[in-house]
């Protein structure tokens, strides 16, 4: 059994330690807000926070997560920065299909926690690992700025 701390709750899972966090979340714990997009850390749909840093859950073995704190899209709204990001996303009508947006929001939240007032270039750097097939990048950039404003 592996003990996990996810969104401040302890879960025990019985799974091989090489299993990526993504599939523990989705298929074992039923937390399906974190998305599968590529399986090779190329698209960012599976982005979660590990001790506050944005990481790709699809390539993160569960064995490496034990004892550390995981935040997912289901829990990020409990954080004021995460909440501000979600509200900015709604206000700017960022989402289209919405499939990549949990990952985008997790990446944006991690950025704002580190850099409360990022420039366009800093936003590009932090979010270029997150693909949006619907092409909402312009609104994402606007919403990150709007979330930063909400925080100040």
């Amino acid at each position: 059994m592996i003990d996990l701390r996810i969104n401040d709750q302890i879960h025990s899972v019985d799974v091989t330690p090489d299993t990526p966090l993504l599939w523990v979340l989705r298929d074992i714990l039923g937390m399906v807000g974190t998305k599968f997009g590529c399986g090779i850390a190329e698209c960012g749909a599976c982005t979660v926070h590990l001790d506050g840093k944005a990481v790709r859950a699809c390539v993160l073995p569960i064995g490496a997560v034990s004892g550390r704190s995981v935040t997912t899209i289901e829990g990020v709204g409990a954080d004021p920065v995460g909440k501000a990001v979600q509200e900015a996303w709604i206000e700017r009508d960022v989402v289209q299909c919405g499939y990549c947006q949990p990952g985008q929001i997790m990446a944006a939240t991690a950025l704002l926690k580190e850099t409360p007032h990022p420039t366009d270039m800093q936003i590009d750097e932090a979010l270029s690992g997150n693909i949006c097939r619907c092409g909402t990048y312009g609104r994402i950039r606007d919403a990150v700025h709007a979330a930063a404003e909400r925080q100040s």
Binding site: G77, I90, V94, V95
Partner: peptide, 10 residues
């Protein structure tokens, strides 16, 4: 559909 999508509930 924005809220359910940004909260991962969609």
């Amino acid at each position: 559909d924005s809220r359910i999508k940004v909260e991962g509930r969609c």
